[in-house]
Design a protein around this nucleic acid. Structure first.
Lengths: 363, 363
DNA sequence: TTGCCATGAACAAACGATTGCCCTATGTTA
DNA sequence: TAACATAGGGCAATCGTTTGTTCATGGCAA
């Protein structure tokens, strides 16, 4: 460093309070109070004018890191998800950012790919970084790193994942009701062998949607054949493989309810590969109503949830928690709605499927 | 604050060097040197053991904010894009994060929705935050905030966007060549009225791909009818509207090359709405080969570029620039490849379209 | 003239970590 | 025995802000 005391930015733009103060011939603290509009500061008009002119000329912005250290707030939120490539999480993220930005926050995005190790690594970094809050939509709530969030008193909100302790701030939909809706729809279409592509048993959405599926079957007087449920996880690949297993059964299902649209998409591809027509030979329903669902041919019947609002609601809960000290309300649960498209159309002919696919998702 | 001097975390876990030092009965600086494995530290074995045991028990992690202030590095990168909901940017982000994570960096995601104001707001925040580097894949390179990145000496890399100054670190594909490839393909299929859904004239990809389109037409001895080009931007909606204009012409095109897969998807929907069969009545080609392209029916013919590698290459360039002080190489340009699917299939019948759609994108 | 009160800013102590330098014991060597 | 080297850590400045407190000055009333 050639300039030992006063560091000038390029183009001679000062970047620190100290430099600014030297130029204005006042003490740095005075400049700080002007910048922050400190009401306790009584300042002579000419002095204030001098400082403000300088601030404008130099476009000074306080160093956020130093500010973060002093004020103990970073104005950063973090979102931990399995994979941003999944359209569900893309829409979710937008909801989060759109609600966070107006309040001055920016958002770190952390993909875990469903790996507990990556999740733990991310959470540890986030804790060290002192992010102001975390939104968790990833799978592993037993992770000790999650507990350490609690212990560190880092505010957090869960999206689409209940924790076991059950008392965590939560945003999501009524998974049981949604799954019942979709399954009941398949029942009413006359199907009696209805398969289920399930999520992992370690994830609440997986468990609850399966429960809804089983409830709908029971209400219809249909026994839940365990053979008709195959674990697919939440990916297209998983959906394809699980569907393959189901379709290879001696008595394969004529309809499938998938835990997730992505799994349903996998099933759709698998059905096509097997030469089955959808919906004539196999009806398929998903969950979430991702944008892709309405663009497929046939359009995917699915359970619509307001993904973007999941994000913004979670964001707001988190920020309120950060500002206010505690959580209110503790949870936001949206009511899911069935969206019927071509993949389960009743007397589906080609035209019907096309029509249905033309509907735009409301997301 | 009840505890004035020594702040204990919950569960009595110390969180600062000072507390740790007090417990180990050594000076904080000594603890710091142990944590950072300072080679200049000569320390008695028992002392070291005492400190290390303490570090393990308490799971101490240095406060990243304080560290950032002192060391002038935040270990944060930022990505500025129009919209993460667009599959192209989802894949890009994963590439970036996957390359950044092993080197200890986490990544802020900033969506601009193509708004210069939002972009400027984001860039200003990022500068104030002292992020270590920025990857720009958004549209506005004239933005003064971008210049200020340069002025602040914040390292940055452009993805898929040339700046006018032309000397910025860049990652992307040869847009002219890619567009020529796609257009030439349409020419070879026998089309003579080939339309173009273009990007904005302010964005390099828009300009260059249009140039490639025109070059291919010229080579084929086809004049470029300006009426056959409509500005679509990079969104599905824009693509639909632009396609609508083209299809309403007295002599509408029989083939369309879209600047982007998303625009092509919009055109596909518009064609369907107009009762046109793809590819029989209208052939459509896109650019980027997003995952969606291979799942549509018919599959979308497109120009494949390695999106994930765009991200990882950009990430690596940026990190090298941060570590090394300057940029080498200044740019990475991938060679695009044509992927032919059902949307331009030659004597396409239903079956052919289906087959083509079954191919998985290599991304 | 003395005392008091605003006024207008400067002072200085944090926030938590890093790091060049200094200091104090103990051997070691001349 | 005096000078010196080395081991083992402590000291203190620094990164850039924020903020409670103190201080000097001048005006005004008594």
């Amino acid at each position: 460093m050639a300039d030992s005391n006063v560091n000038q930015g390029i183009y001679g733009m000062p970047v620190t309070l100290k430099e600014l103060a030297a130029m204005a011939k006042v003490h740095p603290s005075t400049v700080s109070r002007v910048v922050n509009h400190d009401p306790s500061l009584r300042i002579a008009a000419p002095t204030r004018a001098r400082i403000e002119a300088l601030l404008r000329q130099t476009e000074y912005r306080p160093n956020g890191v130093a500010r973060g250290l002093k004020l103990r707030q970073t104005l950063v939120l973090a979102v931990v998800i399995p994979d941003i490539t999944n359209p569900f999480f893309g829409a979710l993220f937008r909801g989060i950012e759109d609600a966070a930005a107006p309040r001055g926050y920016q958002v770190l995005l952390c993909n875990t790919d469903g790996s507990p190790d990556r999740q733990r690594a991310h959470l540890q970094s986030l804790a060290a970084r002192r992010v102001d809050g975390v939104i968790l939509a990833s799978s592993f709530l037993k992770d000790p790193a999650v507990r350490s969030l609690r212990h560190q008193r880092t505010p957090y909100v869960l999206v689409n994942r209940y924790s076991e302790e059950g008392m965590d701030p939560f945003v999501g939909s009524d998974d049981v009701a949604g799954a019942r809706l979709a399954t009941k729809h398949l029942v009413e279409l006359g199907h009696t062998r209805i398969g289920h592509l399930s999520g992992q048993a370690t994830v609440s959405t997986g468990v609850l949607r399966k429960r809804g599926y089983q409830a709908a079957l029971a209400e219809a007087g249909l026994g839940a054949d365990p053979e008709l449920t195959a674990e697919a996880g939440f990916t297209e690949d998983g959906g394809a493989r699980a569907a393959e297993r189901l379709l290879a059964l001696p008595e394969p299902p004529t309809a499938i309810f998938a835990v997730t649209d992505m799994a349903a998409v996998g099933a759709l591809g698998q059905a096509r590969k097997a030469g089955l027509r959808v919906p004539q030979d196999l009806a398929i329903a998903g969950y979430n109503d991702i944008p892709l669902a309405s663009r497929l041919i046939p359009g995917l019947t699915t359970v619509h949830v307001p993904i973007h609002e999941f994000g913004s609601a979670a964001s707001r809960m988190l920020l309120d928690q950060i500002d206010g000290g505690h959580v209110l309300p503790r949870s936001v649960v949206f009511t899911p709605q069935l969206v019927v498209r071509g993949s389960t159309a009743r007397g589906a002919d080609e035209a019907g499927a096309l029509d249905a696919s033309g509907r735009a998702g409301s997301e």
